[in-house]
């Protein structure tokens, strides 16, 4: 799939930056339409999710369950607007369906449900337990002799869950170097600053102590995102944790780094301002 490798890093990054704007706009519009959902954590993950879906992952929207495909698990399932947006824009299902988010009879449930939508392999929303499913997928790939990579996206607050560290130990025991955990380090969780609600630093040292390889990146610098995630999927004999330094609500100035925007829908006026900003129509 990644014929894009022939292009320069700059070209790829420029394309992805444009796509990430479309993803961000879709997130805001979807949550506005539902008047419910999580903008903040969707926007913080928008750049690396876009890079995975539009460049890095070996996937085929025409054949969503192709056996050797790379897997993506959104362990922080509340951020599913970013996933739904990426899937729709990548062609897994019609983009018009995005406006049905959280409505009765919709395939776009409040938290992601496996098999409801093409492209979604793991149910999540209850924090901590998507990661274990990703570990199972990595074991399954190894058992089946498949070469694919499994990506799991975790919130920094999600790291509070003890079960995350069970999975971390298990992955290291089996040297699952086909497993990549991306931690969305936006330093906010539901009740406030992640560092205050439950200090988890040093996160890098914790994963290293669990025998993981740890990489870090600026989660909003597309060139860094590309080069770091490319490195992450190289087999190293150990599972890899990528710490993405991000800003919750990134791309919409009034949402950026604000606790309130964890799970609040934008009003009509806020939606308008947000979309203008994302499209670059305001300074």
């Amino acid at each position: 799939m990644t014929t894009s490798n022939a292009r320069s890093l700059d070209e790829r990054a420029a394309f992805l930056e444009m796509k990430a704007r479309e993803v961000r706009k879709a997130i805001v519009e979807m949550v506005h339409s539902a008047q419910s959902g999580h903008c903040g954590g969707s926007l913080s993950a928008a750049d690396f999710v876009t890079a995975l879906y539009f460049d890095l992952m070996d996937i085929d929207p025409a054949e969503p369950r192709k056996p050797g495909r790379d897997r993506f698990v959104l362990s922080k399932g509340h951020a599913c607007p970013v996933w739904y947006a990426a899937l729709a824009l990548r062609g897994y299902f019609p983009a018009e369906e995005l406006s049905t988010l959280r409505r009765n009879d919709s395939r776009l449930q409040g938290h992601p449900v496996a098999t409801y939508l093409p492209g979604i392999d793991a149910t999540s929303g209850s924090l901590g337990l998507g990661f274990g499913q990703a570990l199972g997928m990595a074991l399954d790939a190894r058992l089946s002799g498949r070469k694919n990579t499994v990506y799991a996206v975790l919130g920094d607050g999600e790291l509070n869950e003890g079960v995350v560290w069970e999975t971390a130990a298990q992955a290291a025991k089996y040297r699952l170097d086909n497993l990549v955990a991306v931690v969305d380090r936006n330093n906010l969780q539901n009740d406030g600053r992640a560092d205050v609600i439950m200090p988890m630093e040093p996160i890098d040292k914790k994963f290293e102590a669990f025998n993981w390889r740890v990489l870090e990146m600026d989660g909003h610098d597309m060139r860094q995102v590309l080069s770091t995630l490319e490195k992450a999927r190289e087999r190293s004999g150990r599972p890899t944790c990528v710490i993405a330094r991000t800003i919750k609500g990134k791309g919409v100035s009034f949402m950026e780094d604000k606790r309130e925007w964890h799970g609040k829908p934008p009003s009509d006026e806020e939606r308008r301002r947000a979309c203008e900003e994302i499209e670059g129509r305001t300074p």
Partner: peptide
Amino acid sequence: DSDIGYSTYSYLFGDAFPDRYFNLGIA
């Protein structure tokens, strides 16, 4: 509480009685 105090409204107690309120994270 487990990091859901703004939803359970337990933050009201936490603001008034910080010494008797323990937010133990998402756990």
